[in-house]
Amino acid sequence: MKLGGYSAHKKSVDILNGLLVACNYTLFNRTQFIDNKNLPLGRPIVFVANHQSTYDIPPMIYFLRRFHAKFISKVELLTAGIPSISFNLKHGGAANIDRKDPKQSIAEILKLANNMKQHNWSAFIFPEGTRTKTGKMKSFSVGGIATLLKKNPNALVVPVAINGSYKMVEYGSFPLRPFTHMTWEVLDPIDIQGLNPEEIVKKAEDAIRLRVKEEN
C-alpha cells in the first residue's frame, strides 16, 4: 500500500488469502469453491452469504478477487492488531462498523457504497450478523444491504451458500478439526426489479437456505 498503492496492496491481499486457503490442506480439509463464471465484471455486486466461521472469509476473497469486493466488518477487528488483517481492514476499503454506534455504522457503509459506485467495487456481507456455532442459519437483517443498494440501484445481489466451515472450529480455535469438507457455492443473481430491500433479502435468505445443510 505504501509503496505501490491500491493495486499492489490488493495483489498482496489476494496472495495472502490464497495461502490461507492452502493452509486448510495441512489438516486434510477440503475447500470446494463452486464459482459462477456468468457474473459480469465492471458492475457492483453485493455478495450475500451465511456465516459459519472466520474461515468463511479467505476463500471468498481469493476466488472472487476479480470483483474487488470489500467486507462489512466489526470495528474490533480493525483495532485488534491482527497481523496483515487489521492493516487491510484499515486501508483496503472495508466498512468497519461499531455495532454500538448506529450513526458511525451508517457512515461507514455509506462510504463503502460510494466507493462501489465510483470504482465498480463489490461488497461481501453476512446479514446474520454473527457466526453460527451449529451450522443452523439465523434470520437475515436488512440494514446494510438496503444502504448499499440505495446508493447502487444497478448492483447485482448474489447469494453465496457456505457449508461445513463451522465443523472445522467445533473445538474452538485450537485444535482445528481435520478431514472436514467445506463448500462455498456462488448462486445465480437475484432479480431485484420491483422489490423492496426486505423482499430482496428474503429471496437471498431463501436461496441460501435451500443449499445449506443444517443438522439437528
Score class of each variant (00 low, 15 high):
P127H: 09
P102A: 09
P178M: 09
V158K: 07
F124M: 05
L187T: 08
L112E: 08
S105F: 03
N96L: 07
K167Y: 11
L176D: 06
P159F: 02
I162W: 07
S139H: 10
G129L: 04
N114T: 13
F179R: 09
F87V: 13
N163I: 06
P83C: 05
N115V: 10
T134M: 03
P189Q: 06
G194H: 00
H91K: 15
Q118V: 14
K103E: 11
L149P: 09
S165Q: 05
W121Y: 11
Y166S: 05
K167H: 14
W184R: 12
P153Y: 01
M116I: 12
T134G: 02
I190G: 04
L110C: 10
Q104T: 10
P178I: 09
E185S: 15
N163E: 08
M137H: 01
W121N: 04
H119K: 15
A80V: 02
L89V: 11
I85L: 14
H181C: 11
E108A: 10
Q193I: 13
K90M: 08
S173R: 13
G144F: 00
P189E: 02
D191L: 11
G144N: 00
G135F: 00
I97P: 04
N154R: 09
W121K: 06
G135C: 00
L176F: 10
E170Y: 09
E185R: 15
D188A: 12
V160C: 01
V158M: 01
N152K: 02
D188S: 13
A107D: 12
N96M: 11
K90C: 08
T183K: 10
P102R: 12
D101Q: 04
M116W: 03
V169R: 10
N152D: 03
N152R: 05
N152E: 03
K111G: 08
S105R: 09
Q193R: 15
A80S: 15
H181A: 12
D188K: 13
I109K: 06
I82H: 08
N114F: 06
T147E: 01
S141L: 13
T130Y: 01
L149R: 10
G129Q: 07
D191N: 15
F87E: 09
F179M: 11
V157C: 07
Y171V: 10
M137S: 00
D191W: 07
